[in-house]
Simulated scan of single mutants.
Amino acid sequence: MIFDFDKEIDRYNTSSYKWDEAERMFGEKGVLPMWTADMDFRSPTFIIDAIKRRAEHGIFGYTVKTESYNEAVAGWMKRRHNWNIEKDWICFSPGIAPALSFIVQAFTQPGDKIVIQPPVYYPFSQVVEKNECELVCNPLKFENGKYVMDFDDLRTKLDSQVKLLILCSPHNPGGRVWTKEELIELGEICLEHKVLVVSDEIHFDLIYKDHTHIPFASLSEEFTQNTIVCTAPTKTFNLAGLLTSNIIIPNRHLRETFVETMNKNFLVFMNSFGVAATENAYKYGDEWLDQCIDYLQQNLDFLTNFIESNIKELKVIKPEATYLVWIDCCELGMDDKSLEQFMLKEAKVAPSLGYGFGPGGEGFIRINIGCPRSVLEEGLKRIEKAVNSYTVLKP
């Protein structure tokens, strides 16, 4: 079956956070939303049909995971990631950002330290600070066109008060797929200092050619017992609104502690449609995903070529994964607020602004290429026109 990713679909008036909230969020009419991480592609028919069948039943009572659901999740992990998991390792969360907050509540006390590696997905810092823990930054280094971990810096910052390290794998916004060697060195440092690794792997399915995602917990039995892996079908199949994530916790004690925290927050039941969608996505989604990745690769190539040819002031940090592209705008010579206003008011494009991702994000934007190519081209042409006008007027 050939799937159509070129079709533009009007998402206005669908309660879309990305589209319907753009004017309120950015205070500007007519902006093209290229910010938040959901795609503008229809979910595949086999997911839509599963939701329809569930809807036709007509009763939407309290819903729990089924044996077939767990088998579908485990089958996907084995088939796509060569990771053998036990079905009882799979825990529910309505999303990964909420799961991170529950994990902080479960395994730390106010005042404990938690490490993140900026520039990185901005809720990481928020879940630390909102739960009254101390944020410890182990900034990534930018070397030879890509981000790498600074292990020497990490070793200096791990003391007895550090309880967790939140890993972003693949990395958002930098797009890195961490190598086996990088992950092993990180894991060994954390084991040595008795630091629990929480690996956010929500983008783990969206990997470009010549790269392979390795689930952090799959690398050794010691890592397995010292890791919580956060996964979801939401980025892969565009299901964020169904609030269904799978938190995989092999260590029984860690799993029981996490579930107890979820119970304390009365998060026991799942979204009826999320269960149906996830099970069918993981049973039948391989061919659709393969074609989606091919299309995203073409979008990435289009964006890279367009910017290199037409907007030479910008530099693309080419991702190895995700449909999010990190772009260096420092050559424009703007501070962060000026860059934000320039994109919104002059280009009429709403990207994610780099400063929101923490230290190292200044002067960058993040653009979502999970959209029909015509939409991507429109956004890039708007930026090109604005940059050309700016550089003509620039002293």
Rank of each mutant, 00 (worst) to 15 (best):
F5L: 09
D6I: 01
K7W: 09
K18T: 03
D20T: 06
R42C: 12
R42T: 10
I48G: 10
A55N: 15
G58H: 12
S68H: 15
V73N: 14
A99P: 06
Q105M: 15
Y121D: 11
S125P: 13
E129C: 11
L135Y: 04
V136Q: 03
N138L: 06
K146E: 07
Y147P: 01
V148L: 02
D152Q: 06
L154G: 00
V162M: 05
V162I: 02
K163A: 08
L167N: 07
L167G: 03
P173K: 00
R176F: 03
E185D: 08
G187Q: 04
K194L: 11
V195A: 08
I202K: 05
H203P: 04
F216E: 01
S220W: 00
S220I: 02
F223Q: 01
N226D: 00
A232M: 04
I249A: 09
P250G: 12
F269R: 08
G274H: 07
A281D: 02
L300K: 08
T304K: 12
K312A: 05
V316H: 08
K318C: 07
T322N: 11
I327G: 04
C330E: 10
E331F: 05
G333S: 14
A350M: 13
P351G: 11
G360W: 09
G361I: 10
N368Y: 03
P372T: 01
L376V: 02
E384P: 00
P395G: 12
